[in-house]
């Protein structure tokens, strides 16, 4: 039906309809306020858990950046920690070696440097797909880590960069012991980043990414600049991962080469898939649940928490293939259907 409409209608018409479609998709739904209410509520209900909460928010941002490329553009990477690491080290080197510790400007610096990293590596690597891409992204992260270890005079190697002097936020708020200020700061940054990502996803550019994920050949055939779009999305995702890394370094005032670990890349991927890819809020659900499970299991059975996490992953794949949010939708739909 739609196809015949498009062929008969004039170009202006078509454009208007496309705009209407995208605007309709773009409209903020009521339910979208829930995660933000929760983030705010946590601050008041668990004021003694904000240090942990800050780390959860950072993990959400990191997973969100991965969702942009993995969930929307279908780029499977095992080296996303590289950009997190670049962000963290931007902050570390600025504040410990170059004497500049202003937190907000450091976020921008981290975003730019990580973005450049994404642009360069993406330009080379995004010609490949599948296992090859997995290995190439992985090797890139390892190379960065090895280089960092080679120049341990600057990076401090695996002992990291201590003595980072992070200035007060806006010259007023310091990183207090309870981590209240940084929780608010991280939440605000996450919100801004989220708005940007949401905007991108519902823009024509975002739709093109989904097109690439669903059918690369067709996108090529209709003359879409596939490689360029992939590289742009990769660059944006890298910049956001860089901001997450920078926030991590600022909040802990410390970073080591461990940020480049394979574990870090794998963990963020697991978080995202757990929550559900390509659905924007999957990163929120996945990162939060993973972090809380890890935290709880590691308290209850410190030696064996891995079993629990492993089991949850296996069950998710077997019974909730589209992630926990997907499961949630299925259940909701089931009830709706049985009602009618």
């Amino acid at each position: 039906m739609a196809a015949s409409d498009v062929t008969t209608a004039g170009p202006d018409d078509r454009r208007a309809r496309a705009r209407a479609f995208i605007e309709r998709r773009h409209r903020i739904r009521l339910g979208e306020i829930v995660p933000w209410l929760l983030i705010a509520a946590v601050f008041f209900i668990f004021p003694d858990r904000t240090t942990f909460g800050t780390q959860v928010l950072i993990a959400i941002m990191f997973a969100l950046s991965l969702d942009l490329i993995l969930g929307y553009a279908g780029i499977v990477t095992l080296g996303h920690a590289a950009f997190f690491g670049i962000g963290a080290y931007t902050v570390a080197i600025l504040s410990a070696r170059l004497g500049w510790g202003e937190p907000i400007s450091m976020l921008f610096a981290a975003a730019v440097l990580a973005g450049i990293g994404g642009l360069i590596s993406g330009w080379f690597l995004l010609r490949y797909r599948g296992l090859t891409l997995l290995m190439l992204t992985l090797a890139t992260a390892v190379l960065l880590q090895e280089f960092g270890n080679y120049r341990s005079d600057i990076t401090g190697g695996y002992d990291g960069v201590p003595g980072m002097e992070i200035w007060k936020l806006l010259g007023v708020f310091e990183n207090d012991l309870w981590g209240h200020n940084y929780y608010i700061y991280t939440a605000i940054v996450l919100f801004v980043v989220f708005i940007v990502v949401r905007h991108i996803i519902y823009s024509p550019f975002g739709q093109a990414l989904v097109g690439i994920r669903e059918n690369v050949r067709r996108m090529h055939a209709i003359g879409s600049p596939v490689h360029r779009r992939l590289v742009i999305s990769y660059t944006i995702a890298a910049a956001i991962a860089g901001i997450a890394g920078a926030l991590f370094a600022e909040s802990t005032a410390y970073t080591t080469l461990g940020v480049f670990d394979f574990d870090n890349s794998a963990k963020v991927m697991v978080m995202l898939i757990l929550g559900g890819t390509g659905r924007l809020y999957g990163a929120f659900a996945g990162a939060t649940i993973y972090m809380i499970l890890e935290d709880e299991f590691s308290k209850a059975f410190p030696e064996y928490w891995q079993f629990g996490i492993g089991l949850v992953l296996v069950l998710t794949v077997l019974f909730a293939r589209r992630g926990l949010l997907g499961l949630f939708e299925d259940v909701a739909q089931y009830f709706r259907r049985s009602k009618s």
Partner: peptide, 22 residues
């Protein structure tokens, strides 16, 4: 299934094997 699901399932199994051996 997608590569992603496979990765997730098998990482889960690997984690469980680590715990069992411990």
């Amino acid at each position: 299934a997608t590569e992603l699901d496979q990765v997730l399932l098998t990482i889960g199994l690997a984690f469980m094997s680590i715990a069992v051996c411990t």
